[in-house]
Design a protein around this nucleic acid. Structure first.
Length: 554
DNA sequence: TACCCCAGCGCG
DNA sequence: AAAGCGCGCTGGGGTA
């Protein structure tokens, strides 16, 4: 494997080539035309090593240059700084440096988005990418499990490439259809600052029932008061609480809230702001969530409501292949814990399998029980089902229980591939101290216990959600390679990823290749399971459908 | 005016 | 069903 480390200098880019052993191959090169250089050396199939993919790759993509693989030094650094698999390495024990700052929200240098669009060196000074690269290679080599951490870093870096490519391609959104969907539900687009007809009509109905002409349903505090005056003693205006109340105003109010939400979050102004040239281009943020899931910013990409998915329409002659990993997190749990009985139950529909095992009576119960096991439910139906689930699958439940105990004790937990949880913050530590200190009271003890359990629920879920995120990254990285091989056209004329949502992807593909894409999506899922869990016989079935618009996928 | 926090709800 | 995990966005309402 050849690694080419790119480094911004004052006016140009410096490229240094390294071999597997960390030995430098040949002299450093000064690069004037980066896109041309990368395109030329990409034929060697190197790993491009750079500080931050989002800083380098968009301009390459804009120049028509796609790369197969990279090392994102900042994302890799963030993982190895915390991972129990690299604890004790020079990287993990060194003081915080520039390599630690990019993912810290409060860090002033990243507040300025322009920094990343800027094709020049950071005026504050460029950290030495080659030195960091060698430090990382050393940490991987000395790791307790180089294979796992290496796979995680490769998958994370592939994710960084995919995030840029998806933004570059964009998700196709049809403005006219979006407008029609809104008009059907809300009435025609109102003038700025006005409510659409449907909301206005519902408001009239509510005001009539409440006998109040100035109630503002958009203000929870005001609404609560108005409900109180009408004799409705709710403690909040949350929909699920209102649903339990029998009163004529509830039905129009719930409908108002639903439609109002659509209007504000994904209405006309959403389209104006976030969709341009028929494409929705959110900023995906790999590693943006503490568990390793992606975050996104700009238009709420990961919350695209079902109501408007019909406006996500494939180009003429193209299709969407919408694929999601069925029941991913419980399957991850059975693989992580090597619980063969749960793996057996997951041969087909996992929840039906749990019913067949005799643990619970209905599919709905199986689902609630599994969610409770992974989230740490203690009460309600979910809590009541736990003992039966534990009897049926002791090995799987023991794994999440151990993770919960670790968190309650303030310890770290680690995913399958090596992403470790953060330590609880100083407030948490202080609360634990208060429970035993001289000033301890029943109140401080209860607060400490509550905080401990809460952190335990976090670590319990961390290993499952985090390992599921690793699976999804491996799935998507493998799929990206497979899609690329399906055609010989220009990048955007080949099948390509346009959307990712934790356990679901959308591929935009020429219609003639859709059937093949479905096969690749499934094959990539099989690969991902093998890569991460080896011979452990856990199935990761994928539901994949070929559609013209996103709403047609269930 | 510019921020910050909260309540509420969308997604997995 | 409304207890338990992780997010981002909006409008309201407060403070500086």
């Amino acid at each position: 494997m050849v690694y080419i480390v790119l480094q911004r200098a004052a006016r140009e880019v410096l490229a240094r080539t390294f071999g597997d052993e960390g030995t430098e191959l040949g002299p450093a090169e000064t690069v004037a035309d980066l896109a041309a250089y990368v395109a030329r050396r990409e034929t060697e199939r190197p790993r491009w090593v750079w500080d931050y993919t989002r800083r380098w790759y968009p301009s390459l993509l804009a120049g028509g240059v796609r790369v197969e693989r990279c090392v994102d030094l900042r994302l890799s650094h963030a993982i190895m700084r915390n991972s129990t698999l690299t604890a004790g390495s020079a990287l993990a024990t060194s003081p915080r440096s520039a390599w630690d700052y990019s993912l810290v929200v409060d860090e002033p240098r990243v507040r300025d988005e322009a920094l990343f669009d800027f094709d020049e060196a950071d005026p504050i000074g460029e950290p030495d990418a080659a030195a960091e690269f060698l430090l990382q290679r050393e940490a991987i080599a000395a790791s307790a499990d180089p294979g796992r951490i290496g796979l995680l870093l490769a998958a994370e870096s592939a994710g960084a490439l995919i995030a840029c490519e998806m933004k570059s391609a964009g998700l196709p959104v049809d403005a006219d259809t979006h407008d029609r969907l809104l008009t059907d539900l809300l009435g025609p687009r109102p003038r700025y600052g006005e409510r659409p007809a449907k909301l206005e009509a519902l408001l009239d109905v509510m005001r009539g029932i409440l006998d109040s002409n100035d109630v503002n349903p958009d203000s929870p505090a005001e609404l609560l008061k108005a409900l109180g005056r009408a004799g409705i003693m709710a403690t909040s205006t949350r929909s699920w609480e209102l649903k339990e109340i029998k009163h004529p105003v509830i039905a129009p109010l719930l409908e108002y809230k639903k439609l109002s939400r659509l209007m504000t979050a994904n209405g006309w102004s959403w389209l104006d702001t976030w969709v341009a040239d028929g494409r929705f281009r959110p900023e995906y943020v790999p590693g943006g969530v503490v568990t390793g899931r992606w975050a996104a910013s700009g238009g709420g990409a990961l919350q695209l409501p079902k109501q408007i998915r019909g406006a996500v329409i494939a180009d003429p002659g193209w299709k969407f292949v919408v694929a999601d990993a069925s029941q991913l997190e419980p399957r991850i749990l059975s693989a992580l814990s090597a619980d063969r009985r749960m793996a057996e139950a997951g041969r087909g529909d996992l929840y039906e399998g749990i019913v067949a095992s005799g643990a619970v009576k209905t599919r709905a119960q199986a689902k609630i029980a599994m969610l409770g096991a992974m989230y740490g439910a203690t009460s309600g139906e979910s809590g009541r089902l736990m003992p039966a689930l534990t009897r049926a699958f002791p090995q799987a439940i023991a794994l999440v229980e151990a993770a919960a105990r670790a968190g309650e004790n303030g310890e770290i937990v680690t995913t399958r591939l090596g992403r470790s949880s953060p330590l609880p913050g100083s407030e948490w530590q202080a609360a634990q101290g208060d429970a035993y200190g001289e000033a301890a009271t029943p109140q401080t003890a209860a607060r400490a216990r509550g905080a401990a359990r809460s952190w335990g629920r976090f670590t319990r879920n961390f290993i499952v959600q985090g390992t599921a995120a690793e699976w999804a990254l491996c799935w998507m990285a493998g799929l990206r390679g497979r899609l690329w091989s399906l055609a010989e056209d220009q990048a955007l004329d080949r099948p390509h990823l346009v959307f990712f949502l934790h356990d679901e992807v959308i591929v935009h593909t020429p219609a003639r290749l859709a059937e093949q894409v479905v096969l690749e999506v499934r094959a990539a899922a099989v690969d991902a399971g093998r890569l991460i869990f080896g011979a452990m016989p856990v199935d990761f079935p994928v539901t994949a459908v070929t559609v013209d618009n996103y709403a047609q996928a269930k």
